[in-house]
């Protein structure tokens, strides 16, 4: 009971407040920009050349404003939005009217989730393991080599690195496709032909994320472990004659992982924002380009849909970490 009152409840309240404030901000911010979704649609219709009498343009603007529910004050729209959101409805996309926002998100979400969850977990595991070992065995030649490689990779801007992979393996040695999520003519299905095709198309985007992700996790973990190895309990374990591998894994790396778990949860929470640059460089489908297009076209509802999921994702991941942290850290459990 005390756990619920003193630990669980405050965190749930905090989660709800963060979600409420976050969603409120993302509701108002797009509306304060000069981008007008109605005008964006009209511009898209007319900019390439279709004829429209100026009087008809004015009438169309009025019709679309009504149709999109953009009439009335900002607060009127705000309350209507919460009314819809409670029912799990983000409304129709304004630019793709009347396609529901959730339908558009569901087209892109599996791609983003598949790519980012896999690459985040792989790079977290490998990066932390190698970083932990390199931090503990810092004088070994392999540890120094890994350290040097990470120091070279880590500062490379992601855009440059992904472009480098693209040019190298899609052009100079063209063994991977340069664009897309799967081959033209291939049917999506749970079969080897599609799965292998999907893996091939995802390989370069995944590698770009995994390699830089490993480098980032490696360096952070190495730094954490470098501090832990100087702790008294590690010295004591060494003096006690425990095996190096036991000290490394059970005393050092295990403790070093605690802050990294928080990082992992936040990274997983961020997947709803997509990986914009990856998607642009590799023409890979996902939420990033969906959100980018929505911002450019002033598609308020779609912006709200994607960013609300992102806010909920990050806040939810933080809550989850808070709740499961006692499992990893006995100090919190005992408190």
């Amino acid at each position: 009971m005390l756990f619920i009152k003193r630990y669980l409840l405050p965190r749930i309240v905090q989660f709800l407040v963060v979600v409420f404030v976050g969603i409120t901000i993302v509701f108002f911010v797009p509306r304060l920009t000069p981008v007008d979704p109605v005008q964006q649609v009209i511009s898209q219709i007319t900019s390439q050349g279709a004829f429209m009498d100026p009087a008809a343009v004015d009438a169309l603007r009025q019709s679309l404003t009504e149709l999109y529910g953009l009439e009335g004050g900002m607060f009127q729209q705000y309350f209507a939005f919460w009314g819809r959101l409670i029912k799990g409805d983000f409304g129709p996309s304004l630019f793709q009217f009347p396609t529901p926002v959730m339908d558009l998100i569901m087209i892109s979400l599996p791609w983003t989730a598949g790519l980012l969850i896999t690459t985040t977990i792989i790079s977290w595991i490998i990066g932390n393991l190698l970083g932990g070992l390199a931090g503990y065995f810092k004088n070994k030649a392999w540890a120094k080599t890994l350290d040097n490689i990470s120091m070279v990779l880590r500062p490379i801007p992601y855009y440059i690195f992904s472009l480098l992979l693209l040019i190298l393996f899609a052009y100079l040695i063209p063994i991977f496709p340069s664009a897309g999520g799967y081959s033209v003519g291939r049917r999506i299905g749970f079969n080897w032909a599609f799965i292998s095709d999907l893996l091939i198309h995802s390989f370069l985007p995944a590698m770009s994320l995994v390699i830089l992700g490993i480098a980032a996790n490696f360096m952070t973990m190495k730094l954490i472990v470098s501090n832990i190895v100087a702790e008294d309990y590690v010295m004591y374990a060494k003096a006690g004659g425990l095996k190096e591998s036991t000290i490394a894994f059970k005393y050092v790396i295990k403790n070093g992982l605690l802050p990294q778990i928080t990082g992992l949860a936040l990274s997983l929470g961020q997947i709803f924002g997509g990986a914009l640059i990856t998607e642009i460089v590799f023409s890979y489908p996902g939420l990033g380009t969906l959100l980018y297009g929505a911002i450019n076209s002033g598609d308020y509802n779609l912006i709200m849909g994607v960013t609300s999921l992102s806010v909920i994702g990050i806040a939810g991941a933080t809550l989850l970490v808070d709740l499961i942290y006692p499992l990893f850290d006995p100090r919190i459990r005992y408190r």
């Binding site: 649609v41 898209q44 219709i45 169309l60 019709s63 679309l64 996309s93 630019f95 793709q96 009217f97 009347p98 396609t99 339908d103 558009l104 087209i107 969906l290 297009g293 076209s297």
Partner: peptide, 14 residues
């Protein structure tokens, strides 16, 4: 944005 929709006869962008 909505690849399965070929109805370009509305005022939406397809």
């Amino acid at each position: 944005g909505s690849p399965g929709n070929f109805n370009v006869f509305t005022s939406a962008w397809r």
